[in-house]
Design a protein around this nucleic acid. Structure first.
Lengths: 217, 217
DNA sequence: AGATTACACAGGGTTTTTCCTGTTTATGCT
DNA sequence: AGCATAAACAGGAAAAACCCTGTGTAATCT
């Protein structure tokens, strides 16, 4: 096999063990070669700058420290639109799938897929430009039916800070003190956010924040 | 190398891609060989029964469907105490670490460890019987200082059901209706649980439930 | 310049949560 | 039978959460 004609892959995942193992696996596929690994988005940005040849495909994890998959994909589509990005996440979360597709991911896979499926996906992505699994198709179809919850409402700095603190055992009064705002203002944030997201109570907010990676456990 | 003298490994992880990749990695280590993989605890139980030779080491994930790492380890220590189990989790969660050690795990690793570290750990486990990383030592030391929260208090069926529902947007009154109990009884559950776990409010309970895998997101 | 929007804040109310201290009833134990 | 223990339940009350409407003020748009 002429390795010069291999399609080049980059793996972005903070789980070193996974990345290294995956590298071995992909290198055993015919026609594909991992040219480098990165631990997170920032690391990737850095490595891409010191590289003469861009990878054909980037396998991108979502849950990463420093710079997560969403931010990373956003940066990639803006700066390297030719690189095909495949999301490789542990979470079967419709929200994640849709967010990544919206940003231009060419596929979305759970880490429990069969190695053969990955190989097939890599081939398809090179030939057709994308590989949408059944899960991805389902997520897209479902999204057509749901007009209820907003996909990703925007929150400003204060609101985000409030949400994070609301996911702790702090009372709203304590949150207001920490934010150096009146309790009434903070209550206003709460009302706005509840209305925007259609929440019934604080537990709902916590769940929303978790589902949307606004906070970590 | 005489593969007959290789130390044998089993990988238990529901992420097929990870398991397969890891298999390739471990097989590239000198003196170690993956003899089989399982997707979760039940799968492992099944496969162990149809096996003449037990593996020397089991690499065990924690977050798995059907039968998770905690239950699996418990079963293993009861039924196959000679197998050395290494926990291999994504979560840097002190609670997880301590629970697994208490059950007899010979090591606990995050999936972001360096492949070399894993190799070293496998060797150590065969030679010394264990490999406790700095993270594990820290968790143990910390546990010496904390007399505050109980490690894993037991909850009965009703309490567990209550906890799960308390992690939704239901009010306590609604929970009581669903459980066909008086609101006062349910409030009693709440008080007991809050006191047992040292919680300040419902958000704390949600966080506890998540950290301890009582619920899934 | 006038209108719109965003933000901080208040008044004032209802509902829910949180907490304490009890009683009754059933169950198991010796 | 006597006793401890657990489970279901209540009264009562303070704190917190929740919700609506409205005001002043500064920034932004047209």
């Amino acid at each position: 096999m002429n390795t010069l004609n291999d399609n080049t892959i980059a793996v972005v995942d903070d789980h070193l063990l996974f990345a290294s193992s995956l590298e071995k696996l992909i290198n055993s596929f015919q026609g594909f070669r991992v040219i480098f690994k990165a631990q997170h988005g920032l690391d990737l940005k850095d490595k891409l700058q010191h590289l003469s040849d861009l990878p054909d495909i980037i396998l991108l994890d979502i849950n990463m420290p420093v710079m997560n998959g969403f931010e990373t994909l956003k940066w990639l589509t803006e700066n390297h639109p030719t690189i095909r990005v495949l999301a490789l996440s542990m979470d079967d979360n419709e929200m994640y799938i849709l967010r990544m597709l919206k940003e231009g991911a060419k596929g979305y896979f759970l880490k429990d897929i069969h190695p053969k499926t990955l190989e097939k996906a890599l081939i398809d992505v090179m030939e057709r430009g994308f590989y949408y699994s059944e899960m991805v198709i389902n997520a897209m179809v479902n999204s057509l039916h749901s007009d209820l919850p907003e996909l990703d409402p925007e929150f400003n700095k204060n609101e985000l800070q409030f949400i994070k603190m609301a996911c702790s055992e702090l009372t709203y009064k304590e949150i207001a003190e920490k934010m150096k705002l009146s309790p009434k203002t903070v209550d206003g944030y709460r009302q706005d956010i509840f209305k925007k997201l259609g929440l019934k109570n604080r537990v709902g907010l916590v769940m929303y924040a978790l589902k949307n990676k606004l906070i970590e456990i």
